[in-house]
Write a protein that binds this DNA or RNA. Structure first.
Length: 437
RNA sequence: CGGAGCGUAGCGCAGCCUGGUAGCGCACCACACUGGGGGUGUGGGGGUCGUGGGUUCGAAUCCCGCCGCUCCGACCA
């Protein structure tokens, strides 16, 4: 992509409304534009990153054995009346009426719809486990949206659901998601810690929030010091095998949200306990027959009797992750994208557009990267050098290749690693082979 | 939903207290000089001062209503 043809409205000044760093940087880097309170338009750079995150989530859900579907954003209130939640949900649910005066709503979540899909088509235990997910926009009319897309009213979320014959089987579904989440966040360059979370009225230990540590996080969390230095993600995973040892190993190391943490019973010595803040990027839990019962989702058992199906649900805040990754990865100059979610891998800066040698070298590099299938952004604008370099740091592409008249005279460009700040001079050919390897 | 604050050019702000017909920086346009970390000069363009009403000879400024947005708290992916 050439910057002269790319819609990237970066800002030098920080818009006043933005308080936390990810919100500031997303606005400054031209990723989003606020449409109204808690509702945002996604501009090209932000949209690209969000799609990359979405794709990683999708790949890992598929790998874990879930089938992707797509349920609508607008739902009939009928299902919610059936589950009893139409009255319970309160003002967070956006209620609307269609032209026939029917009660509709913009879905804040999808248990009702997914359960309806399941009950319509699945009659026998032989078809279990049922494993479906979708990635769809949600709307929750938060009293107080804040922090940009971190707590928007409209947000993109992956929600997966499982249907099992009994608790042991449900636990296996749960473990698959647990492990899939470890992989998902790890691929995005995040250390997401699974923390024991409030499991609500169902009880039991099958509820974990996946939290990335950040000072600006909304949740207060407690974890063992070892979490700060260890990596919990196994290199290879056999989803058909027994995942319990992996989950056990992970949950053996203490980590809990404040609602679950109790100093009186905490097994970790005070000097080993870290009390910090975090951002919830995922939440998995088992809720048994909470929805299958009111909605009548029953299956035939081997002995010919019927029973309600055991359900779990598993959410990842896709749009929130865009902000979460920035919170976890930035410096004073701007964003530092982990390569897996970077909008472009390489940014070429032509310091002197119009200079024949610089233009030729920059174009040649651009063609080389493009041909090699490396996503590249070429700054071919005629801004000043300082502005271009500052802008490139701001948008945080992992690698910068700086082409200037001084270096190109001796066939040298500068390759900079955005994260470490390391700069190395080399020929354009070497830069190409280094970054396409 | 309690508390606080803010709406003046695309962005950041001043002007308001003490009413007299709107200004600064950045950005934008033109030209010149410049050119390796957000340049310099000259000349331009752009604003029903959130909105409705009131007071007044006169309202961005004073008064009342409404709308929007943000922050702190309680609640949530």
């Amino acid at each position: 992509m050439r910057l002269t043809r790319y819609f990237l409205p970066t800002l030098k000044d920080t818009p006043r409304e933005a308080e936390i760093v990810s919100h500031r940087l997303m606005l400054r880097a031209g990723m989003i534009q606020q449409a109204s309170a808690g509702i945002y338009s996604w501009l090209p750079l932000g949209f690209t990153v969000m799609k990359k995150i979405e794709q990683i989530v999708r790949e890992e859900q598929n790998r874990a054995g879930w089938n992707e579907v797509l349920m609508p954003t607008i739902q009939s209130a009928d299902f919610w009346k059936e589950s009893g939640r139409y009255d319970d949900y309160g003002k967070e649910m956006l209620r609307i009426k269609d032209r026939h005066d029917r009660d509709m709503l913009y879905g804040p979540t999808n248990e009702e719809l997914i359960t309806d899909i399941f009950r319509t088509h699945v009659r026998s235990y032989k078809e279990l486990p049922g494993r479906l997910y979708h990635i769809q926009w949600k709307f929750r009319d938060e009293v107080r949206p804040r922090f940009g897309v971190m707590r928007g009213r409209e947000f993109l979320m992956k929600d997966a659901y499982s249907f099992d014959i009994d608790f042991e089987s449900a636990r296996r579904s749960y473990n698959r998601q647990f492990v899939a989440y470890l992989r998902t966040f790890d691929r995005m360059g995040l250390k997401a810690i699974p923390m024991a979370a409030d499991s609500g009225p169902i009880g039991g230990d099958l509820s974990h929030e996946f939290i990335i540590l950040a000072d600006t996080g909304e949740s207060e969390v407690f974890c063992h010091r070892d979490w700060l230095t260890t990596d919990a993600v196994p290199a290879t995973i056999d989803y058909e095998g027994d995942l319990q040892p992996i989950v056990d190993a992970c949950t053996a190391r203490y980590a809990a949200t404040d609602e679950k943490h109790d100093p009186a019973t905490c097994p970790v010595a005070a000097e080993d306990l870290v009390n910090t803040r975090g951002i919830e990027v995922g939440h998995i839990f088992f809720f048994g027959t909470k929805y299958s019962k009111p909605l009548g989702a029953k299956i035939a058992l081997p002995d010919g009797t019927e029973d309600f199906v055991q359900m779990g649900s598993y959410g990842v805040g896709v749009s929130r992750l865009v902000a979460g990754i920035i919170e976890a990865s930035h410096d004073d100059n701007g964003i530092i994208w982990p390569e897996a979610v970077a909008p472009f891998k390489v940014g070429i800066v032509n310091l002197k557009v119009g200079d024949a040698a610089c233009d030729a070298a920059a174009e040649s590099l651009y063609d080389g990267f493009t041909t090699a299938g490396v996503e590249v952004l070429l700054d071919d604008t005629d801004n000043r050098a300082g502005a271009k370099l500052a802008n490139m740091d701001l948008i945080g592409l992992p690698w910068q290749v700086v082409v200037g008249p001084r270096g190109i005279a001796t066939n040298v460009v500068e390759v900079k690693n955005r994260k470490t700040g390391e700069k190395h001079e080399m020929s354009p050919e070497q830069a190409l082979s280094k970054l396409t390897a």
